[in-house]
Amino acid sequence: MKIAFHLRILIGAICLSTVGIIFVLIRQNRLKEKYGVLWLFAAFSIFVFGLWPDLLTVVSKLFRLHHLTTLFMVAFLFLFGLVLKFTVAISQLYDRNLALAQEVAMLKESLKGLAVKMETGLDQKEEPVG
């Protein structure tokens, strides 16, 4: 299957800008490297399928699907995996958030206890020693 020249330019531009955005986000510490890898993989996939659409045709023939269906299936599976990974990450963050809340609550309580002890301790030693 032949791909029009201007379409190749467009695909290339999409991939390059994805890579660029990922790079900038990581550089600014706004995106963790492990998720950056995921998006670089996505950009790479778009690039490969964009330049050699016959690869998709192979998959389509294998599953006897229409081209477009194959494309949607691949994209869907990718997004499915991504969302799954996110919910796993959120679950972990949720656990840690609650554990931190517990720690803070208990630390505050013991700090209050300490403050009370110090005050009463100071009251008992009104006159400085030595």
Partner: peptide, 25 residues
């Protein structure tokens, strides 16, 4: 009573676990 105050609503399970942690600590 001794009072431990969670900084936001964490749910009954997490509240209880705070108590368990306090008890053992």
């Amino acid at each position: 009573a001794k009072v431990v105050t969670l900084p936001f609503n964490c749910g009954i399970g997490t509240a209880m676990q705070t108590g368990f942690k306090y008890a053992l600590d």
